[in-house]
Structure formats: C-alpha cells, structure tokens
C-alpha cells in the first residue's frame, strides 16, 4: 500500500547507520524523594545499520534507555556513545518516534513533517524533502489535512515522515505501533521494515510484543523487570522479507518468552 519505489531518499553509498555503544549505563529517578532505579549497568553495542529490538515487560526502563539515546536525559552512571562520541544533547541525526504520534494539532500534515527542517533553519533549501518523506510513507495528497482529521495509522505515518525527513542515522522507535488496531499494525510492521531497509540507518525498537520484535528486527535484547538488565540476546537469523508463519519464528518466540518468565503458557 505504500509506494516505496519513487523515493528521493537515494542512499549515498558511504552513508549507513551509526555504531552505538552502551557501556554500563545505570539510571534512576527520584520518586517522592526516594531513588527509583530503572536501569542497572546495561551494556550492549549495535552495529551500523542493524535493527535491534528491546523487549521487556511494561515499565522496565526500555523507554528510558531510548530517551538517553536521544539525548533527552543523561544517565546517572555509565556512557552512551554514537560512533565513538558521547551523547550529550538531542540531535536531528538521532530521532525518537513515540507511541503517540504527538503531532502538533495546529500544524497541517505538511508543516508537521517540515518541523525538523524548520527548526534547523534549512526549510528553504530542502523543502522538497518534505514531499519526498510524505510520499515515502504513502501520504502524498494529505499535505493540507490537520492531525485531528487523520486516523491513528495515518497520524503515526506522519510522525514517521517527520522523523525520516531529517535523514536520521539512528531511529529510535518507542512502541510506535502500540496504539494502533491490529490490522493497521500488521501493515505498518511491514512498512517499518521497508523504511529501515530503504534509509539504511541503525534502528532501535522498544516493544513488549514478542511477535513484532521477531518479525521486524535482526536481534532481540530481552530485558528483565525493573531495574532493567539484559537477560538474553537473541539473534534473529532470518532473511527479509519474512513470513509470519515461519516455524523458526515460533522457536525464537518460545525462547524469548522463556527469558521473560512466560514459558509456562506454552
């Protein structure tokens, strides 16, 4: 349903995703004066261009990790590096997509997508990238619509376009399909894979949906309950495009559920 063929996102050969190194990162919040640890010495690395899922129970601290990667918060201890450089501040090369589309309701679809270019002051020189991004997510023709006129799936596509227009090297997805109905969800899972392949970027997906993690990504990191630690690192050794009925996915699913302590239901 998404016309991915005509894209102005031709990838220069030398451009790929970034290398991400997370080293002994711990983080805690203050809750009514009490420290609440959410991450406990988490370490892992993501290869350039890899698509990784962070899978774990709700509220285990996966989203916090994404915020740290985006540069919105700073870790209590440990270091996060992108291509060897410590993450200090938010940067348009690392974009976070939330569970809620969080579009600005006073802006049209086009102006929402243009937000990043506008904020960086390059909207005049690269305005055509907005149209390209809208085509990429299959929303050409909806430029003048306002967010309240969109369905949930369309709004989330706009949010994706708003991220992709900045040509990010690291795409951080915080349960981006979590609030969609199950049919739209299946469609958009396939679209996400296509977008990631097209833009050749590193992508980190936070989800608590085992199937989604296995269907989309190349590697699933399973987190335990809070304070989160990695309890398993499962490579998904299947080529794209994948088939949902693949028996190998079933085996991996069993393995992941076992690590989540839910094996009894199998």
């Amino acid at each position: 349903m998404v016309a991915l063929a005509q894209s102005d996102f031709r990838e220069p050969a030398h451009r790929t995703g970034v290398q991400v190194d997370i080293n002994a990162v711990s983080h805690q919040f203050e809750l009514e004066g009490e420290p609440l640890p959410v991450l406990d010495r988490v370490s892992f690395a993501v290869e350039p261009g890899q698509f990784v899922a962070l899978l774990g129970p709700s509220g285990c601290g996966k989203s916090t990790l994404l915020r740290l990667l985006a540069g919105l918060d700073h870790p209590t201890a440990g270091s996060l590096r992108v291509n060897g450089e410590t993450i200090a501040d938010p940067d348009p090369s690392r974009i976070l997509v939330f569970q809620d589309p969080t579009l600005f309701p006073w802006r049209t679809v086009r102006d929402n997508v243009a937000l990043g270019l506008e904020a960086q002051g390059i909207i005049r020189t690269s305005g055509d990238r907005v149209d390209a991004a809208l085509r990429l997510v299959g929303l050409a023709g909806f430029e003048k619509a306002y967010p309240h006129q969109l369905s949930g799936g369309m709004a989330q596509r706009v949010a994706l376009a708003r991220a992709l227009v900045n040509d990010p090297r690291l795409l951080l997805l915080d349960e981006p399909l979590g609030k969609l109905d199950s049919l739209t969800r299946l469609t958009m899972q396939a679209e996400l894979v296509a977008l990631w392949q097209k833009a050749a970027m590193t992508a980190v997906l936070v989800t608590h949906d085992v199937e989604e993690a296995l269907f989309l990504t190349q590697r699933v990191l399973v987190f335990g309950p809070r304070p989160a630690r990695i309890v398993a690192d499962i490579p998904v050794d299947l080529p794209y495009p994948r088939h949902r009925g693949d028996p190998r996915l079933g085996e991996l699913r069993r393995e992941a559920l076992q690590h989540l302590g839910l094996a009894a239901s199998w």
């Binding site: 915020r67 985006a70 540069g71 919105l72 938010p90 940067d91 348009p92 690392r94 974009i95 976070l96 939330f98 809620d100 969080t102 600005f104 006073w106 802006r107 937000l115 990043g116 506008e118 904020a119 960086q120 708003r162 900045n166």
Partner: peptide, 23 residues
C-alpha cells in the same frame, strides 16, 4: 512531549517558545 519532539528535531530555545509553547 511537544518539547521533547521539537528538541530531538533540533529546535532552539527560541523555536520552543515561539513555535511550540505559544501556538
């Protein structure tokens, strides 16, 4: 979240006030 979104997209303080907070 509007501020977080705008910040990751490269918004300056000025942008956050005039293009996010005020509208």
């Amino acid at each position: 979240d509007y501020y977080d979104i705008a910040r990751t997209l490269g918004a300056s303080r000025w942008f956050l006030i005039f293009k996010v907070a005020i509208p």
